[in-house]
C-alpha cells in the first residue's frame, strides 16, 4: 500500500492559545482611566499651548480630564459627526452654525477670540505694511506675485484666508500661491523657509520658534478676528457620548473661572486669547 505521512497537530491549539494571549495583552494595555472627555479641537489651540494651561484648571475643579484631539477644523467636524468626540472647540462660526443646523450639534457658545495676522519676510517685497485693510494687503501680494503660503487643509484658518481672498475679489492661483495642505506650524516652517507671506493665527505665531525672517506685517483689521466657539453634540444622534461631562466642560469654559483661565494665558506678557462669552 501507499505510505502516508502521519502527523499530530498539537501546535494548532498552542498557536491559538498564544494568539488569544497576545490579543488579551493588547486590549489590557488600554488603561483604566478616571473620567475624561475627548475634545475635538483645532491645532491652534493645542499648538499655542492654551489647552496645557486651562485643562488642568478644569480638571482641578471637576475631576474630569480633558483629552484633546487637535486636528484641522474640517477634520474636527468630521470626527464630531462620526461621534468620535464628546465636544467641539473650533473657530469657524459659519461651519459651526451649519453643524448645529444639520442636527449634529445642539448648542454653540462663543468662548474666546484671537486674531489672524499676516506674516511675511521682514523686507516686505509686496509692501503690505502700509495697507489700509487686510483685503488691500492681499491685493498687494497678488499684484506683486510674491510667494504666499496657504494652509490648504480646510482648517478654520484656511477658511478665513479664503474668505479674505473672496472679499478681495481675487481667485488666488499661479506659481506664487502655494497650497501646502499642512497645519499652522508646518505651514509657517515652510513659509519661513521660502520667504513667503502667510495668514496665521496670533496664538500659534507667538508660540512659534522657527521664525527666521518672518515678522508680523499686517494686523488689527476687524475682519481678521478669529472667533472660537464650543459646540455641544446632539445626544440623540450619539447617545453613547459623555454628554454630562461635556456639558460640564462647555459651561466651565463660559463661566467666570473658565474665562479667567483663558485670559490668564500669556506668552512674553502678551495674552493669546481674549474671552468673549456672552
Amino acid at each position: 500500500m501507499r505510505q502516508r505521512f502521519w502527523f499530530r497537530p498539537p501546535y494548532a491549539a498552542l498557536a491559538g492559545g498564544l494568539l488569544s494571549l497576545a490579543l488579551l495583552l493588547a486590549v489590557a494595555t488600554a488603561p483604566a482611566d478616571p473620567p475624561f472627555i475627548v475634545v475635538a479641537s483645532t491645532t491652534s489651540t493645542e499648538q499655542s499651548g492654551l489647552f496645557g494651561h486651562i485643562a488642568p484648571r478644569f480638571t482641578e475643579a471637576t475631576g474630569v480630564r480633558v483629552r484633546v484631539v487637535a486636528v484641522g477644523t474640517g477634520q474636527a467636524f468630521a470626527i464630531a459627526r462620526a461621534g468620535d468626540a464628546d465636544i467641539l472647540l473650533v473657530h469657524d462660526p459659519d461651519g459651526e452654525a451649519e453643524f448645529v443646523a444639520a442636527g449634529f450639534g445642539v448648542e454653540r457658545s462663543p468662548v474666546m477670540f484671537n486674531d489672524f495676522v499676516i506674516l511675511g519676510p521682514a523686507n516686505d517685497p509686496a509692501g503690505i505694511a502700509g495697507a489700509q485693510s487686510a483685503v488691500e494687503a492681499l491685493q498687494r501680494i497678488a499684484a506683486a506675485q510674491v510667494p504666499f503660503a496657504s494652509r490648504g487643509d480646510d482648517s478654520g484658518t484656511h477658511r478665513a484666508e479664503q474668505r479674505l481672498w473672496a472679499a478681495a475679489d481675487i481667485d488666488p492661483a499661479g506659481r506664487w500661491y502655494r497650497e501646502l495642505g499642512s497645519g499652522m506650524g508646518p505651514t509657517m516652517n515652510t513659509a519661513a523657509g521660502m520667504d513667503a507671506y502667510v495668514v496665521a493665527d496670533r496664538a500659534t505665531w507667538l508660540n512659534f520658534h522657527n521664525r527666521q525672517n518672518l515678522v508680523i506685517l499686517f494686523q488689527g483689521d476687524e475682519v481678521l478676528f478669529n472667533r472660537y466657539g464650543s459646540v455641544l453634540i446632539n445626544p440623540e444622534r450619539h447617545p453613547h457620548l459623555k454628554h454630562d461631562l461635556a456639558i460640564q466642560w462647555h459651561e466651565w469654559l463660559v463661566s467666570a473661572p473658565g474665562q479667567a483661565a483663558i485670559a490668564s494665558y500669556e506668552i512674553n506678557g502678551e495674552p493669546l486669547f481674549f474671552p468673549n462669552a456672552d
Binding site: 491645532t43 493645542e46 499648538q47 506650524g185 508646518p186 509657517m188 516652517n189 508660540n207 520658534h209 522657527n210
Partner: peptide
C-alpha cells in the same frame, strides 16, 4: 511632529 509644528526644531 508636534514640536516641529511649534517650530521647536
Amino acid at each position: 511632529a508636534l514640536e516641529t509644528s511649534r517650530g521647536n526644531l
